[in-house]
Nucleic acid binder design. Structure first.
Length: 473
DNA sequence: ATGTTC
């Protein structure tokens, strides 16, 4: 029998589209549907969906795509979530995995990365010469030239073309809402990973045969070492959410707006509180993109230390999975929220950045620690889901439950500790990051199978972890 | 996720 990867679930408040194979669908918690039902109570919503990695979050599930028309739209800080602009970046190196065969060399690389990319708790970045007000208002365009090196992409252009967006235009007046303490802290944090599920990983790739042409057009080759980065807007984005929430609540109370969940915040787009939030959210998107860019810059410096000046780390792509912005779909303007969902445009879609117009842009999907990650490309049928796909494996266990149920030995064996294939981790104790063990997550291969089965995207390359850098808590 | 949470 043919597996069904796409369902419409009718709830009292409306329909949620669920993209998941039967096994994943049947394993979904009822709370996920309760949450959808609350989210669907926000007025004028035109579409809501879940990707197969969906799991419960605050106000809204991680794995949600929620869409409004521009002319009568709403924005919801709860749907965007607190780590505004969190996303992925992949850089391609000119190394083959055989050059990192020695565990000792992987350890040396990780150690050197820590020199340029501080990972201790409350780490300060090494970028005090960068002006924060330039970054948050102009994104990558606010960086001094030295941080935008030439030949940073396959076509030797600057890296500004190889991102979902190099700049989110915003009204600078909104920035006055943030305290000087937030400015100070965020300046120091620039170029740091953070903790939780954030990481920088050294991986080797296996190209998917059926999409070899696309992979090679992007500059990928079999056995290539790539650097995958997962990070967000650090304290800046969290402060934006917090700062805006009281205003949002006030607007909701004054207009008689609300759902069954008091934690679900939203306001009509045209309202001034909504506009302030959107502007500040865009500042956080700018921060997050720059932050990942600087993390890559730091790793590149470390790579040059270890492998010499011939070491290259060209940008494949950078994109987000926590954000909301305006998009055109078949000529119509929509306000699209993605919380733990990744945009994945197909070949020929006009919103692809110029270098990826004919192939579609890379969509970067992390697995959990010790498991594979994926480089995907959108498929035409993805338009049914506003070109949204999954953002990763998706949690199945809370952090506390993972610590209670999973042993250090189980974690160590999934990291192949003590073998030649060991996935080297920078943290001295696996115990400190036990809540990130792969046993806390769904099986990423199964998630990808659902996305491909539903016709939303295709696999271009599978990325296998060789070494991981995590922040301390 | 987050310098959390007085």
């Amino acid at each position: 029998m043919k597996e069904n990867y796409s369902r419409q679930v009718q709830l009292p408040s409306g329909v949620v589209h669920v993209y998941a194979g039967s096994e994943l669908f049947n394993a979904l918690d009822y709370q996920v549907f309760q949450m959808a039902n609350n989210n669907l109570q926000i007025p004028n919503q035109v579409y809501m969906s879940y990707t197969p990695d969906v799991h419960v979050g605050v106000g809204t599930c991680i794995g949600t795509t929620a869409v409004w028309n521009m002319h009568n739209g709403y924005v919801s800080p709860s749907i965007v979530g607190s780590d505004i602009g969190c996303g992925m970046r992949v850089h391609m190196t000119n190394l083959h995995k055989d050059e990192l065969k020695e565990v000792k060399l992987r350890r040396k690389l990780v150690k050197t990365i820590e020199k340029y990319l501080p990972v201790e708790d409350h780490a300060r970045g090494h970028f005090s010469d960068i002006r924060l007000e330039h970054i948050v208002t102009k994104g990558l365009h606010g960086l001094p030239k030295k941080y935008i090196p030439d030949g940073y992409t396959p076509r030797k252009a600057t890296s500004l073309t190889h991102v979902e967006s190099s700049k989110f235009s915003m009204d600078e007046n909104a920035l006055n809402r943030l305290s000087s303490q937030v400015w100070h802290r965020s300046h120091r944090q620039l170029g740091t990973l953070g903790n939780g599920n954030h990481f920088a990983e050294i991986q080797s790739i296996e190209i998917a045969e059926e999409n070899r042409e696309v992979a090679e057009a992007w500059g990928l080759f079999d056995g290539q070492v790539v650097i995958m980065i997962h990070s967000g807007s650090r304290a800046w984005g969290g402060s934006v959410s917090q700062t805006c929430s009281s205003d949002m609540l006030k607007v909701m109370r004054m207009n008689g707006l609300g759902t069954a969940d008091p934690k679900l915040l939203f306001a009509p787009l045209e309202h001034s509180a909504a506009q302030t939030y959107v502007n500040l959210m865009y500042s956080a998107l700018n921060y997050a993109v720059v932050n990942r860019h600087l993390i890559a810059y730091a790793i590149r410096e470390a790579g040059k230390d270890v492998f010499g000046s011939k070491f290259e780390m060209t940008t494949l792509y950078d994109l987000m999975h926590n954000y909301a912005w305006e998009e055109k779909h078949e000529g119509q303007s929509y306000f699209v929220h993605r919380k733990g969902a990744t945009r994945s445009l197909p070949p020929g879609h006009p919103d692809n950045p110029q270098p990826y117009l004919t192939t579609g842009h890379p969509a970067l999907i992390p697995g959990s620690m010790g498991t594979a990650s994926y480089i995907m490309v959108g498929a035409t049928d993805g338009k049914a889901n506003f070109h949204s796909i999954c953002h990763g494996a998706g949690r199945i266990r809370s952090r506390s439950a993972t610590k209670r149920l999973i042993t250090l030995n189980e974690f160590a064996s999934s990291m192949r500790v003590g073998t030649d294939e060991e996935i080297v981790v920078n943290q001295r104790s696996l115990e400190s990051i036990l809540d990130e063990s792969p046993q806390a997550y769904k099986d990423v291969d199964q998630i990808i199978e659902s996305v491909v089965g539903a016709g939303l995207a295709k696999v271009v390359a599978k990325c296998k972890p060789m070494a991981t850098v995590k922040g301390a808590k």
